[in-house]
């Protein structure tokens, strides 16, 4: 089932389905994160911290609501 990134619980992994905000999509591409990849939520502080391989990225709540993911 598709949900948004901010709905993930700590420790859950999910596949990125869509970035609704195009700026975030471009910035994510630079960081090495894109649609189709599996990420893991490693911290929930209102702000979400996701990890892919060695890469950790902190994403504010407002942005995380605009990222569609599918739990895996």
């Amino acid at each position: 089932m598709n949900t948004t990134l901010n709905e993930l619980k700590k420790g859950q992994s999910a596949k990125i389905i869509e970035f609704k905000n195009p700026e975030t999509r471009l910035q994510s591409a630079r960081f090495g994160i894109e649609v189709g990849q599996v990420i893991k939520c490693i911290a929930k502080l209102g702000t979400v911290v996701i990890q892919k391989n060695q890469q950790q990225i902190a994403i504010g709540k407002g942005l995380s609501k605009e990222i569609l993911v599918k739990e895996v």
Binding site: A43, L45, G46, T47, V49, A58, G60, K61
Partner: peptide, 19 residues
């Protein structure tokens, strides 16, 4: 510092700022 930014982000958002 970046981890502190992630930690304080929520509060700072209320002040119109971010982490």
């Amino acid at each position: 510092l970046p981890r502190l930014a992630a930690l304080t982000d929520r509060f700072l958002t209320k002040l119109g700022l971010n982490g």
